[in-house]
Simulated assay, not measured.
Amino acid sequence: MALHMLGKDPESPEGKSPTVYYDDATGNYLLQGWKVLDSERLAQMDIPEHETVIEFPRRMMQFFPEVTGGS
């Protein structure tokens, strides 16, 4: 398995987050973003115990191959 970094948020102050990764073993994306801690927003979702929610800026969509026409 290898993770491939597809892109980091160009507006991140220190270039650390958010980040899009691709896992070539599973074909899935891994997203690094800001933890959602706002109880009002979390209460509007049905989140299983084994999952979490991150916030991810729209500008990061540019790194998904499906959006750019790449593979």
Rank of each mutant, 00 (worst) to 15 (best):
E14L: 07
E14Y: 14
E14P: 01
E14R: 12
E14N: 12
G15T: 10
K16T: 12
K16V: 13
S17N: 08
S17M: 05
S17P: 01
S17T: 04
T19M: 12
V20Q: 08
Y21N: 05
Y21V: 01
Y21P: 01
Y21R: 01
Y22W: 08
Y22L: 09
Y22C: 06
Y22D: 11
Y22E: 07
D23I: 07
D23E: 06
D24A: 11
D24L: 02
D24G: 01
D24F: 06
A25R: 05
A25N: 13
A25C: 10
T26P: 01
T26Q: 03
T26D: 08
T26G: 02
T26F: 07
T26V: 05
G27P: 02
N28H: 04
Y29A: 04
Y29V: 02
L30G: 07
L30E: 03
L30H: 13
L30S: 03
L30A: 04
Q32F: 11
Q32R: 12
G33M: 00
G33E: 07
G33D: 03
W34G: 05
W34P: 00
K35G: 06
K35L: 03
V36P: 00
V36M: 08
V36R: 00
L37F: 02
L37T: 15
L37R: 13
D38L: 09
D38K: 07
S39F: 00
S39N: 03
E40A: 15
E40L: 03
E40R: 12
R41N: 05
L42N: 05
Q44D: 12
Q44W: 00
Q44A: 10
Q44G: 14
M45H: 06
M45Q: 05
M45N: 00
D46E: 11
D46M: 07
I47T: 09
I47Q: 06
I47K: 01
I47N: 07
P48A: 09
P48G: 10
P48S: 09
P48L: 11
P48K: 08
E49K: 13
H50E: 14
H50R: 13
H50S: 13
E51C: 09
E51D: 14
E51K: 12
E51S: 14
E51R: 13
T52I: 11
T52K: 13
V53N: 07
V53R: 03
V53Y: 09
V53P: 04
E55T: 12
E55I: 02
E55A: 15
F56M: 11
F56C: 06
F56H: 05
P57V: 01
R58V: 10
R58A: 14
R58E: 15
R59A: 05
R59T: 09
M60F: 04
M60N: 06
M61Y: 07
Q62E: 11
F63L: 03
F63G: 07
F63W: 14
F63K: 01
P65N: 14
P65C: 08
P65V: 07
E66N: 12
E66G: 15
V67E: 13
V67K: 10
V67D: 10
T68R: 15
G69E: 09
G69C: 04
G69Y: 06
